[in-house]
Design a protein around this nucleic acid. Structure first.
Lengths: 191, 191
DNA sequence: GAGCCATACCTAAAAGCTTTAGGATAAAGC
DNA sequence: GCTTTATCCTAAAGCTTTTAGGTATGGCTC
């Protein structure tokens, strides 16, 4: 019986793809084993349990979004940078709903510290470098951007904006929100 | 053998309390049956399945928060109204993490329409009545407030703000965010 | 190339959650 | 007091998770 070549990495990737297709909650070890045509217990050599799988998907998604954000932020600043960073989250949440949902799971302290989370915080601080904010206001602004982007993606994903039928559209509101955030943060600038 | 007096309502309330204690994911029918000292299949007369339980908890939580919001908004306007509505969500998310998590679950279209969701939308519109916005901007603002409040509550719950050890504190940022939202929406006012 | 070792993957099995089927009895209505 | 309703039960099957222990594959040493 030939070996399939399972690794933690391949299992994680398969779990992420499966989550995007069928939803994060439907990613069972049974379903995962089926994609590799392998018996369920075989997975236990590579992941600890289903919670571990979800954590690994979260870490993968945080890495991917951090890479996307780093690319998107190259050479832009101010409102353009806010739009670029927000756009990364918004389009990622749409294209990879399962992976995105995983990024919303709480991670324990040391896992979070070893994740791409700190890199995200640094990238968000980079967005704000175009504004003249002191340290405290920079922190406030990092939190405001995080909250707004994630809140928006979550409401969008939940269909709260009407699945394209609402007036005005989600896209229109999105532009308005970006304008608003730009103005808001500019209003905090030291005079 | 005396009857316990199960009803959909009592099961839902027990599920909500259990969710606040042990987390929404840990609300299994088995655990729920244990709280009533009843056999698991007995629950099936009152709820359809575990997903139905979560939906019912979500509907309960939406009702509760709508009631709280209606109270909190009585007689206030402008920045005070934004603070009141945001405060309702923030404190509810802290005091009832399981119920709050349930409000974040996607509901199907007709369930959402029959929920307290529309009442929430109306309450948020009431907050904005203190500002002079046209219809489109009111809709944008409703979405902005929803996104910001829910994003903030989610990040707060996930410990992204450092569990009281961070500088500046979550409370300080919260006030700053309220100021910012007030300014932002005021900047949209028709001149 | 032969033999050895690590480990990838397996079968067996138990435990927990969900779900259906069908039955007994408590409570409500007349 | 009897009938009816539906509440709650036991029995049982199916699925997911998890542990224990075995087999054989593929790489490594010589």
């Amino acid at each position: 019986m030939p070996r399939v070549g399972l690794t933690s990495d391949r299992v994680t990737r398969a779990a992420a793809d499966l989550a995007d297709e069928v939803g994060l909650d439907a990613v069972t070890l049974t379903a995962l084993a089926r994609t590799f045509d392998v018996a369920v217990p075989s997975l236990y050599s590579h992941v600890r349990n289903p919670a571990d799988v979800r954590t690994r998907v979260a870490l993968l998604a945080l890495e991917e979004t951090a890479d996307l954000a780093a690319d998107a932020l190259a050479g832009v600043s101010g409102r353009d940078a806010i739009a670029a960073l927000g756009g990364v989250w918004r389009s990622y949440a749409r294209r990879h709903p399962g992976r995105y949902a995983a990024t919303r799971l709480p991670l324990d302290r040391e896992t979070a510290a070893a994740s791409a989370g700190p890199r995200h915080a640094e990238l968000t601080r980079a967005v704000l470098r175009g504004y003249r904010l002191d340290d405290a206001d920079t922190t406030h602004a990092v939190r405001l951007l995080g909250a707004t982007f994630h809140g928006y993606a979550a409401l969008d994903a939940a269909g709260a904006f009407g699945h394209g039928t609402a007036v005005p559209t989600s896209d229109e509101t999105w532009e308005r929100v970006l304008d608003g955030l730009d103005n808001l943060i500019r209003s905090w600038e030291t005079s």
